[in-house]
Amino acid sequence: MQTIEEYLPEHPFFAGLDQPTLELLAGCATNVHFDANEVLFHEGDQADTFYIVRKGLIAIQVQSPSAGGVVVDTAEAGGVVGWSWLVPPYRWMFDARASEPTSAVAFDGACLRGKCESDPAVGYALMQRVARVMLDRLEAARLRLIDMYGSSS
């Protein structure tokens, strides 16, 4: 199996980052695996991890008394999960669960924040990548908001 340092440049989120930066960030990372249905985190829990998905599928979901659990987003190989580690109060807003057996790299949130603060260039490069994914998610969420496929009747 690849080491984390070997894998990171292959993940789209880290594309374009130089080797020293990747090595720096890899210092915060561990490989993790989730079985199908395994919960990564629950709404309201302390948010201290950032995941990049290597394979599998992670569902972001929300509990609703009337609708049951609703999956509102998913992340698959090449995708990422978790923003709440970035900003106070560092609490998850949603639940995350593996829809199928999933491999990911987990970064310690406090560790990443420390790297960003001590080296603003690394911080900026990381934030640019976070912003790109967030923008993509936000645009998609806005378009889904209008129910464009339409409900009948």
């Binding site: 659990g69 987003d73 998913t74 645009e139 998609a140 378009l143």
Partner: peptide, 15 residues
Amino acid sequence: DSGPHSWRGRVGLVT
């Protein structure tokens, strides 16, 4: 666009 808890597939926009 969204799926029930039992949905094992992808959620998101086609774009």
